[in-house]
């Protein structure tokens, strides 16, 4: 097994809100090996962006890391102090931001914006800085003559490439990508991912791709992490998570994928992600899960399904039986069994 460059260890993070503390991340553990590509999927509000911000150490002021560690190359950034964390940013863990238009400062030349990222960590002379920026532009396929342009002078796809160039400036061992192509059309999206993949093989960085698009992760990542309601509900090698899913939510996400020519209509999961201030007891997905049982009101264990494959569900070992049912639209339309039946069940259990 490859050695991990980034290790998130039982991370709990809360947001202070007027209504109380929102449990935005609960018991999140994840390790990323050198050169590996990992995809994190989930609906919006499942905590994936919060996780990335936590790793970068740029949480909003009302967020606190309650327990857990974020280890980069063995050093826990949470306890190491702000200066160590600041140094690790960009030189160790860089990020391709979500919205290319707003992520670049509109009134600064892109060369200046890349240069300032380098200068925050290295003391390079001007020539070396500029040479590096030119090199980076060539690497991502943007005309190096344009390094002194302003962000608004680039097209959407070009801006995204500039952001990738910026992320690679200090050859970081870990690259985070937060929905890097949501604003782009499919063709440009493909070009960008092919370029990222080639760069990853060439430079050997590990990539953590965060998206709501399971298809993107299946195509581009070796491992998949599925998040729901601030928790990891399933994680494992792509083939196993898709082929032998251990969690109903993963099945639901897969059903929701549009497939060309398969004659299968995408099925969406009815309902909404849980309220994180007062999450349901037990499994956070139970309220939307068609396979929920009385015992789902207790916290499900993290079941080991394979060498590197885990799922957080009471019924993960029954998935093989439930899977055919999960492919049917009616199953999902029926939704979760009404709470009454769960209650009756527990009374019967007594």
């Amino acid at each position: 097994m490859r050695t991990p460059v980034l290790e998130i260890d039982r991370l709990d993070l809360g947001y202070a809100t007027r209504a109380g503390t929102a449990a935005a991340l609960r018991d999140v553990s994840l390790s990323v090996a050198a050169g590996e590509s990992v995809g994190i999927v989930g609906e919006s509000g499942c905590g994936k962006s919060t996780l990335l911000k936590a790793v970068m150490g740029v949480m909003p002021p009302n967020a606190t890391i309650e327990t857990g560690a974020i280890r980069f190359m063995g050093t826990d950034l949470v306890t190491a102090g702000p200066e160590v964390w600041r140094r690790a940013r960009w030189s160790g863990i860089a990020m391709i931001a979500q919205s290319a238009l707003n992520a670049l400062n509109p009134v600064k030349r892109v060369s200046a914006q890349i240069a300032e990222a380098i200068r925050a960590h290295e003391d390079w002379p001007r020539d070396k800085l500029r040479a590096r920026i030119v090199e980076l532009f060539e690497m991502v396929g943007v005309d190096p003559a344009r390094i002194d342009d302003f962000p608004h002078q680039f097209s959407g796809g070009m801006r995204q490439r500039v952001l990738i160039a910026m992320a690679l400036a200090l050859r970081p061992p870990v690259l985070l990508a937060d929905e890097p192509t949501t604003a782009l059309d499919v063709i440009v999206q493909n070009q960008i991912f092919r370029r990222l993949d080639a760069l990853r093989k060439e430079l050997g960085f590990a990539m953590l791709l965060v998206t709501h698009d399971l298809g993107l992760v299946i195509e581009n990542c070796e491992r998949i992490v599925v998040m729901y309601g601030g928790m990891i509900v399933e994680a494992g090698p792509t083939a196993q998570v898709i082929g032998a899913s251990g969690h109903p939510y993963t099945l639901g996400l897969y059903n929701a994928l549009p497939r060309l020519g398969a004659g299968v209509e995408p099925i969406s999961i009815p309902g909404r992600p849980p309220d994180l201030v007062a999450p349901p007891p037990g499994c956070r997905f139970a309220g939307r899960c068609p396979f929920a049982q009385p015992r789902c009101t207790t916290a499900p264990p993290l079941n080991r399904l394979g060498a590197d494959h885990v799922a957080r569900c009471h019924r993960s070992d029954e998935m093989a039986v439930l899977r055919p049912d999960a492919r049917l639209a009616e199953t999902w339309e029926r939704g979760a069994p009404v709470p009454d039946t769960i209650d009756t069940g527990s009374i019967e259990g007594i």
Partner: peptide, 12 residues
Amino acid sequence: DYVELARMKGLR
């Protein structure tokens, strides 16, 4: 976003 990104870049 660019203010957040500036912080992510490791600027003081």
